[in-house]
């Protein structure tokens, strides 16, 4: 009558805490030294559902969560030699691998191109070198340059800009002082700023 009934005792009497850490450490060392598939299977069965639970909270969908699990456990298999029991427990090591992979996956999904990768910040699997993204030489505008451009403005525009941005006066005050309509102050300001901007862009 008992035929076909799965024995679940091993599952329910799983050791916990330091014991499981010791057990998993030993498996990791065996994987590192002998490429032992049975030891890896033990690690996999213990950690894959846990990493998946973490991944489901972090990623947008099921498929991405599974990708994160696969990547994490593949790294464990391939780089078990990098695990150092003196530095921390297997679950901390595997968590940090998952955290790094998650970070890089999310970074890749973003439209903007960020040139920072997880291993720069959290060296867990120190073998990775990031792709050398082309760095564009974009132009630096210095205080000196702005000063030079400023002196190139027509005298009337320069007076308005100086009064507003250096002396901190309002446009109305400048208008009263120079005896010109407020609209003229506004248009001179606008023209001056536009001109400076053009000069800066031409410099590029």
């Amino acid at each position: 009558m008992l035929v076909g009934i799965q024995l679940e005792t091993r599952q329910t009497q799983r050791p916990s805490g330091p014991e499981i850490a010791n057990e998993m450490s030993t498996y990791l060392q065996t994987v590192a030294s002998e490429r032992c598939k049975a030891s890896f299977a033990e690690i996999f069965h213990y950690f894959a559902p846990r990493v998946r639970s973490y991944a489901l909270k972090q990623m947008k969908n099921e498929a991405q969560a599974m990708e994160l699990v696969q990547e994490t456990l593949a790294n464990v298999w391939q780089k078990a030699h990098l695990f150092n029991a003196e530095k921390g427990s297997p679950s901390t090591w595997i968590f940090t691998i998952a955290r790094n992979i998650r970070y890089d996956m999310l970074r890749k999904q973003q439209k903007r191109k960020e040139d920072i990768c997880s291993e720069d910040m959290w060296p867990v699997l120190c073998e990775q070198t990031a792709s050398d993204a082309e760095v564009s030489l974009d132009h630096q505008v210095t205080l000196e340059q702005v000063g030079q451009l400023f002196s190139g403005l027509p005298v009337k525009q320069k007076a308005v800009i100086e009064a507003i941005y250096v002396e901190g006066k309002s446009q109305q005050e400048v208008a009263d002082e120079l005896g010109i309509p407020l609209g003229t102050v506004k248009s001179r300001t606008r023209l001056a700023l536009q001109r400076l901007r053009e000069m800066l862009e031409k410099d590029d």
Partner: peptide, 10 residues
């Protein structure tokens, strides 16, 4: 963080 994250399994 690892202790918390690895406590639950799917």
């Amino acid at each position: 963080l690892a202790r918390e994250a690895m406590a639950e399994k799917s």
